[in-house]
């Protein structure tokens, strides 16, 4: 009698189901070592919401353990990596994805470094070209000793140099 009561209670418990959000699974159900490997991979892509920048795979918190378990269950039911990521994103927002998506303002994260590199490259090339155009001093000029070729503005320095040369 008591067992039946608990069975009924258990049957009535209904937690929010991924199928309501994601529809049917789009991949094959996983099991064994493959399931563990995929769960590990996914766990490194999801951010633990109660930690400081940790993946759920690296966090010892209860919340992260629950999320790993949820990811494992969804993969075992045949939900794909993209579907599982999307499930978490739908409840936690893009914050939960450790790798931001290539869209909107986030695209700048990818585009800005490339743009800055390209601008730097253009600057370097332009400078190099300008240097190429500046006339090279005549061959004879290079043979002149350095000390005499320099124009000394500083009277003190000129005096020092004079004294050194004399001694």
């Amino acid at each position: 009698m008591i067992a039946t009561f608990f069975l009924i209670a258990l049957l009535q418990i209904k937690v929010p189901d991924a199928a309501q959000v994601l529809g049917p699974p789009q991949g094959p159900p996983l099991a064994g070592a493959q399931l563990e490997r995929r769960t590990m991979e996914l766990s490194s892509e999801l951010r633990c919401p109660v930690c400081q920048g940790l993946a759920i795979g690296d966090s010892p918190s209860i919340m992260a353990a629950n999320m790993r378990e949820q990811a494992r269950e969804l993969l075992s039911r045949g939900y794909t990596r993209e579907q599982v990521l999307s499930y978490f994103e739908k409840s936690y927002g893009q914050f939960v994805l450790l790798k931001p998506k290539f869209q909107g303002v986030n695209a700048l994260v990818w585009l800005l470094p490339v743009l800055v590199l390209a601008i730097g490259f253009v600057i370097v090339v332009t400078k190099a070209k300008r240097l190429e155009k500046t006339p090279v001093p005549a061959a004879g000029a290079a043979a002149v000793p350095e000390a005499t070729s320099e124009v000394i503005d500083d009277p003190y320095l000129a005096r020092v140099r004079e004294m050194v040369e004399k001694s």
Binding site: V15, P16, V21, P49, V50, I62, M63, N66, M67, E69, Q70, F88, S91, Y92, G93
Partner: peptide, 15 residues
């Protein structure tokens, strides 16, 4: 009682 925290996950509960 949300035994395995699945309801909390569906609601995006962090802390």
């Amino acid at each position: 009682l949300d035994a395995q925290g699945k309801t909390a996950i569906a609601y995006g509960v962090g802390g």
